[in-house]
């Protein structure tokens, strides 16, 4: 009787002989094209982040505030994708993970998992482990939209956890730097995730919408926005997707005003209203 090893080895040999008949044996240009495209994207992102990366002392940096809404809108491919980055000796082992605006945490975990060659659940656990206690174990919204550049790619689990810590650390550090009280962190994150979807364009719109949402919560009015599937009163119990540091800033610094309504115009801007009558009149002419 053969051992399992012997039989599997035999199968492996059989497969090895089949390689000659595969397209890969004679033509791997598809692999080259895909790799070129992915590396070109990475190089261009690193070039944009160049100054910050070269100045970073430790594990990594994030190039934020430039997150494209649409993957197609990523920085254009340079004519020579393999031109040296600003500081090649520092950047050789770096890689970039792009988080789109409104991206859900499941997609972030999947991307992180594929970079480290682990299960998505493992990557998700690393993200959850990286959360501050204020997140109540709910990672949605806690990874900033933007390009996160990591200076080293170590093997899991150490490298994976470092990367997760870095991904979550961007928002946490910003909340600390802005002096948001810890017991308001979760609400600020949830608010920001809604603002990202409702007022994607201008900072002034974002601070205005932040105020509208908070006024409605204070007045026991339902949130009633398209993006948040919320029934009843108050903010949803968790965020609805990723947002940029700029939006987090807006959520933490709402404009002053007694608006209770907002209307998105066709050009992506936002108009604010105090009364239902004003709001209705504007809807009627839109």
């Amino acid at each position: 009787m053969n051992t399992a090893y012997e039989l599997m080895d035999q199968l492996q040999g059989e497969g090895a002989r089949l390689f000659a008949r595969s397209a890969l044996a004679t033509d791997h240009s598809r692999v080259v094209r895909k790799v070129r495209r992915d590396r070109a994207l990475r190089t261009s992102v690193l070039s944009l982040a160049g100054v910050a990366v070269a100045g970073a002392a430790a594990f990594g940096v994030a190039n934020l505030g430039t997150a494209p809404l649409d993957p197609v809108a990523t920085p254009s491919t340079p004519s020579d994708p393999f031109s040296p980055s600003p500081n090649p000796s520092t950047l050789r082992n770096s890689f970039t993970l792009s988080v789109w605006k409104q991206e859900t945490i499941g997609d972030v975990a999947r991307e992180l998992a594929s970079r480290f060659g682990v299960d998505q659940e493992v990557a998700m656990n690393a993200l959850i482990n990286a959360l501050p206690p204020e997140a109540n174990g709910s990672p949605e919204g806690w990874v900033a939209a933007g390009d996160h550049t990591f200076l080293e790619e170590q093997d899991p689990p150490h490298g994976l956890q470092n990367a997760a810590d870095q991904l979550v650390g961007v928002h946490v550090q910003q909340l600390e730097a802005m002096g948001v009280p810890r017991d308001a962190w979760a609400q600020t994150v949830i608010l920001a995730s809604i603002i990202q979807q409702e007022a994607p364009a201008a900072y002034a719109d974002q601070t205005g919408v932040a105020r509208v949402l908070l006024n409605r919560v204070a007045a026991d009015m339902p949130i009633m926005v398209e993006s948040a599937p919320v029934r009843g009163l108050g903010l949803p119990t968790e965020a609805i997707g990723a947002f940029t540091p700029e939006v987090l800033d807006a959520a933490a610094n709402p404009a002053d005003g007694d608006w209770l309504y907002f209307l998105r115009t066709d050009d992506g801007n936002v108009r604010l209203f105090t009364t239902y009558e004003e709001f209705n009149a504007a809807v009627a002419v839109q």
Partner: peptide, 29 residues
Amino acid sequence: FGYAYVLTGSADAAEDLVQDALVRTFRSG
């Protein structure tokens, strides 16, 4: 290819798998 073939049991699936693995590996440097 042989290793991928043991896992997948088919030459076509092995080819897809090897190609995917090559892209994953080389794009990250």
